[in-house]
Amino acid sequence: MPRLVNLHPSRGGALALGALPFLLLIAAYLFGSATRLAENPDDKLLPAPSAMVDTLKSYAIEEDRRSGEILWWLDTGASMKRLLIALGISALVGIVGGLAIGALPLVRSLLGPFVAALAMIPPLAILPILFIVLGLGEVAKIALIVFGVAPCIVRDVSLRAGELPKEQLIKAQTLGASSWLLATRVILPQLWPRLIDALRLTLGSAWLFLIAAEAIASTEGLGYRIFLVRRYLAMDVILPYVIWITLLAYTMDWLLRNTRARLFPWAEAH
């Protein structure tokens, strides 16, 4: 009998093991839902799957009677737009800031401590400031996400730049590289994979800040909807929305991982 640490599942086995917690959760839900509904058919806490499918239909296919919009897609579109713009800005700030701090000692001394301090401010604590200064519109929500995510990305990317072997940078200089060429041809290309990793890691907090901002001041969006229907204990809306958000986040993560493998094959472990 080999040691437990040396036991590896087969391909099929790994799939089955991975699916197990999901199946257990679903089974537990179905059991709980059926038991509660048998006791009280009007129970709202654990709605039956059929009830959720009905709600899903009314949200995702039928137009809302009041606004004439299809709420599911309206919310998804609004949230994704905010999230993608914010992540785009954060990535840009992250790569430019990370490169400058990582490559130039002068900029590192200038901005390193500042960014480190900035990253320590809890973004939700300054949400009121953002709303006061920027108003209740889209800008404040995007700013919150950027504020929460960009400093972490800057730090992570600049750390990577600092990790590059000194030998490499010296070698490039003996090949005649100026500071500019060193940054653009040697350091920057090696930071892209880390930028993608940093984006993947901050995706969770980006969603957190998005939903927080939407919950407080918004008229549409996935977070807005969840907090709106909370008043009516509408678990048949909340649960599908949560699953949908999870699915969106997971897909984004998967896309980023694939992009990294495709664009930067040299950075994959051999």
């Binding site: 072997p165 030998e167 490499q168 010296i170 070698k171 490039a172 200089q173 003996t174 090949l175 005649g176 041809r185 040697v186 290309p189 090696q190 930067f264 040299w266 950075a267």
Partner: peptide
């Protein structure tokens, strides 16, 4: 450092993101 003095270290002096030819062309 400058281009009049070349260096070869024991390790880490190649650029991992460039192919063999690109490393040489750099």
């Amino acid at each position: 450092p400058g281009p009049d003095r070349g260096i070869v270290f024991q390790r880490y002096s190649l650029f991992p993101h460039l192919s063999v030819l690109e490393n040489l062309m750099l």
